[in-house]
Design a protein around this nucleic acid. Structure first.
Lengths: 233, 233
DNA sequence: CTTTCACTTTGCGCCAGCGCAAATTCGTCT
DNA sequence: AGACGAATTTGCGCTGGCGCAAAGTGAAAG
């Protein structure tokens, strides 16, 4: 039996009673996933939904022509793979452990039970979906209206905002991330990302090394991200 | 009192009993919105949610720098402005009547009541949100990986699929839509859209005139949309 | 220690598609 | 009917960022 202290501290469960936490954990099992392993695959029949207890997960979509892009990163305490709450039969993307992870898993059959027994749990799931729709809309707007450098700057700011760890040099992204990964988040190529980061390093905006990125001047980067094309009207 | 025959035929309400339909309609009021009028504005406090009874609605986001883009078109029978189901306080986009519309409106306070009294209604709303998240994800993928001509072709195919009306010349989009509108759906300029449509007209793929677009050769357009860059691997 | 492999950097040429401009067409209003 | 304004078409030049290529670098494995 899993201990309810595992999840009691998470924002999604903050409002729940001890009884409710118990009901939620019944039916869940925990598992470890080594770095770079797939937790579920794109197109696979969606049989379970998940909560990330520890680590970071990359949600990756692969196009028919083989290009990959990263839909989002999942942080500790977040639900993912909740296809069941969206009425989907299969996972629209794959989930890959960005670092070694610990994951809680529920069978989909638990969903209806939980929805009835612990409405706050379903509410949290729907809230999550709503927030992601919102974020995804914003990404569409960005992709449609902003230049590559602005999109990359914005992506870095979001990463440090959501998954940053303060160091003496600035705020570092808490998990290994390659230039290729950043390119797949922003719809560009690793070459362009590399060029941009190099230039920004010279300007003192960012730092980092292999698989590591640190934002040293968030304000400066923010300016870059907002650097809306000067308009004549 | 609104008649339940208004909504009984809609897919979202197909599974509901007569009693439930009555419960849903209690608290709703209907209103007319002339073409090009705003049903709600971006950023406005979300006080209501809506169902489109008749017409077509354009959901438009405006960026801080004044660019517009069209998040989606709403068809008859669809819910929209359901910020309350996503836990949002304000509308993230504006809704504009693309033609004269008839709309059902509920105050947000009805949401909790309906959620408890008619679970199928809430389920339909969540299903809608899930489907839109899915669509929006797909748009991100497209924006990131496909060329402008493929995106425009794809957008046209989706429009005729979702809102097409069969004519003798092909399938026509059921509401007035400008080149500018198509540009705002695909993240390009009206000039490029105009050039593409002109070229496709010559090739016999599409037809149309001012504010009208007809797809005459869906298969051909589909080929164009799929025309994935030939890859070496 | 050195070998290997994944990741990163950088240079160079090219082209899809944008910005700008101007002419044209069509629906609508008076 | 005529005039106005919105929508559309088309031409032209330019450039952001991609494709291709190749060299450099750090980390992990043997």
């Amino acid at each position: 039996m899993l201990d309810r202290s595992l999840i009691a501290g998470l924002p999604a469960f903050a409002a729940m009673s001890d009884d409710e936490l118990g009901l939620v954990l019944r039916g869940a099992r925990s598992s470890r996933h080594p770095r770079n392993s797939e937790i579920f695959s794109q197109g696979q029949e969606a049989a379970s939904f998940f909560l990330l207890l520890s680590g970071h997960v990359r949600v990756v979509q692969t196009t028919p022509s083989g290009e990959q892009l990263i839909a989002r990163y999942i942080n500790e305490g977040e639900l993912f793979g909740i296809a069941v709450a969206m009425g989907r039969e299969s996972y629209p993307a794959a989930a890959v452990a960005a670092v070694d992870c610990i994951v809680l898993t529920w069978a989909n059959s638990e969903w209806t039970r939980l929805q009835a027994a612990v409405p706050a749990f379903a509410a949290a799931a729907y809230q999550t979906i709503g927030a992601r729709l919102q974020e995804t809309q914003e990404r569409v707007v960005e992709m449609a209206t902003e230049q590559v450098d602005q999109r990359v700057a914005q992506a870095l700011l979001r990463l440090v905002e959501r998954s940053g760890r303060k160091t003496d040099a600035g705020v570092e992204i808490d998990f290994p991330i390659t230039r290729q990964n950043i390119a797949e988040m922003t719809g560009t190529t690793l070459h362009t990302v590399s060029r941009l980061l190099s230039a920004w390093q010279v300007d003192g905006l960012v730092g980092g090394s292999r698989q590591k990125v640190t934002v040293t001047d968030p304000q400066g980067l923010q300016l870059l991200a907002e650097n809306r094309r000067q308009r004549s009207d």
